[in-house]
Design a protein around this nucleic acid. Structure first.
Lengths: 346, 346
DNA sequence: GGAATTCGTGGAAGCGCTCCCACGAACCCT
DNA sequence: AGGGTTCGTGGGAGCGCTTCCACGAATTCC
């Protein structure tokens, strides 16, 4: 007597495709077609399979599927940033929100990975190379970030959120930071302000550099000599903005306007200005950057540069999608226009 | 003439285990042993394999491995919270940090998933059921959260960060919220304050409920009748705390102390108090909860209740690990003691 | 010195799935 | 009516890996 190889083994794990096939009285191939919504299935077969799936509470094993399709249907949003407080940056939160919203239409899943140090970066690189994800959106790069190199070397589809610091050839989506900063500064100058200061972000981030460059451009375009005393560097946080504003008031007590490179910093700056007894906008006009929620509710409401976050996140996933499908031009880039939002602070 | 089946196919994707085996002149099994650090490999073989791996830049395909081992070596930290601003809650950031630090020792990877609505919850449930993760840490549960049920029904190893709202039987790790709140309130009473108010968190979160209960307990234990006018509800955010504090001052102008259920709220409360012309701690003593970074730097520095975050996160991953290995008692729980940190505000 | 262990190794099965290919049944065209 | 097309279906190979099992060589023991 031989063993019956078609007999059900003792039910061990979750149900498999074959068990569904047996129950539905069809072949594995047919079940697979139903699961993948192939049109080439008769209504009866489809119905039988669906009933069996429901009865068994069958869930396809994605690992097995990935093994053959080479797709995982998940993309990673990697936050490469030593400073854990980035979480609290509303810009970051908005990007996460936007990307996951853009993905909601698709059946892709978003996983968030954070890399605080080189070791965690390696771990993430390994994770990506091992085929856990179809692609990566990488954000918040400082100049010395290793991940872009590792990932693109490994052939992992990759789109940066923000222009890379060096001129490397890689796909990215960015806001027109320089243009926005320039418009903001021009607005301040147009208001008749004589001493327009700038409170920059970290200069090892391209957004910090670009926004500073915009201020510089507007300043020189207006025929003014850029005064080093009108420049202070912050770190994109509220506390950093407050401190930098205090320094700025110290360096240049006669300033009558300031372009602040992020809204959280601007909120801090507002506080420092109030502490120093300066009225906004009467004594000092303030323009922020980001159009974060806080810009609407702070006192006074902040004139600020809005980035088209929805456009940017949509572009981000579209670019990545094209790369994953292999139908992307190499190193495609998008620079999205910004827009000045006028409120009370300038 | 027959086709040589052992011939190299045109190199298409990333290198596979077989290619390594061929190059090293050993069998697949041996390569696998080297990769998995089995001791049963001769030094020569090991060396040859390692050389081949290096030369080919071989990375094991995790999908294939998972298919047979039934392990993915990744766990998910799920943030189930409709409000996207949770990101900015330092407590949440600390948990993420702690869990990923606890995982750094292991070779597990942490993926972060966010579920803002029922649809995203379903997506995450599917993701987990499909075998993408070995286990799930679930945090920030409101009372009507579906995920615990779905996930535990699906047999996904699960540990909650925070006691579940209902008394469901599930593993969790929580701080002793009630105890901490009680100690905080007792401290305020011990300071000789007569009218000790409470600014709670959302009452559909267990942490909100428990911290309120601690205040209530201390109040009644002190022989006082809890006055509804001394209670206001916030939402754990700074802005919410500011607004609630203003309401509280309105309801009970004679209050001389307030226990605030989170540090961000306490910072908001501090601002509202200053706006109302109350001095802290002279007129109103304030105790917060969380011992967030901000508690140290705000003005005045905040007396607050510290949670042992490192212990909690360690327990979290340990409990989950035990569940994954199948050597966990059902629904193990841990409640970690809190500690009052005295600073200037009370 | 022969039997009984080690020890390192390779062969091969199989994890759960997709998808190519072939096959028969039903249909259309001239 | 016979040769083409559909069309739905099942068989089977194979994705890259782990792991059981067996096998021969190098030990070790009495």
């Amino acid at each position: 007597m031989t063993t019956d190889l078609t007999a059900h083994p003792p039910v061990t794990g979750p149900p498999t495709l074959d068990e569904v096939a047996v129950l539905a009285g069809v072949s594995r191939a047919t079940v697979s077609r139903v699961v993948n919504e192939s049109p080439k299935v008769s209504p009866e077969a489809r119905e039988a399979v669906q009933a069996a799936i429901a009865q068994l509470r069958y869930v396809p094993n994605r690992m097995a599927r990935s093994l053959v399709t080479r797709r995982t249907d998940t993309i990673a949003l990697v936050l490469s940033e030593p400073n854990s407080q980035v979480f609290s940056d509303p810009f970051f939160a908005s990007i996460v929100h936007g990307v996951s919203a853009a993905l909601a239409e698709t059946d892709l899943t978003l996983v968030l990975l954070t890399a605080r140090d080189a070791r965690e970066q390696q771990k993430i690189a390994r994770y990506a190379r091992q085929g856990h994800v179809d692609g990566v959106v990488l954000m918040s790069l400082h100049s010395e970030d290793l991940l872009p190199d590792i990932l693109s070397d490994a052939g992992v589809p990759l789109v940066l959120c923000g222009r890379p610091y060096d001129g490397r050839s890689v796909a990215y989506v960015d806001a027109d930071n320089q243009g926005g900063a320039q418009v903001a500064t021009e607005h301040l100058i147009g208001l008749g302000r004589a001493r327009v200061a700038v409170l920059t972000g970290p200069m090892d981030m391209i957004a910090g550099v670009d926004r500073h460059a915009g201020w510089l451009r507007a300043t020189t375009d207006a025929g003014r000599r850029p005064d080093p005393a009108l420049v202070a560097h912050g770190d994109f946080t509220e506390a950093g903005g407050e401190a930098a504003m205090a320094r700025l008031l110290d360096q240049a007590p006669d300033l009558d306007a300031v372009f602040v490179a992020s809204d959280p910093m601007a909120v801090g700056a507002l506080r420092a200005l109030r502490a120093a007894g300066r009225r906004v906008p009467e004594d000092v006009a303030v323009v922020g950057f980001d159009d974060a929620d806080v810009a609407r509710v702070c006192d006074p409401p902040l004139t600020t540069v809005a980035q088209p976050l929805d456009v940017m996140t949509t572009e981000l996933v579209e670019l990545l999608g094209r790369q994953i499908d292999g139908r992307a031009a190499p190193a495609e880039t998008r620079t999205c226009p910004t827009r000045l939002v006028r409120r009370a602070s300038a």
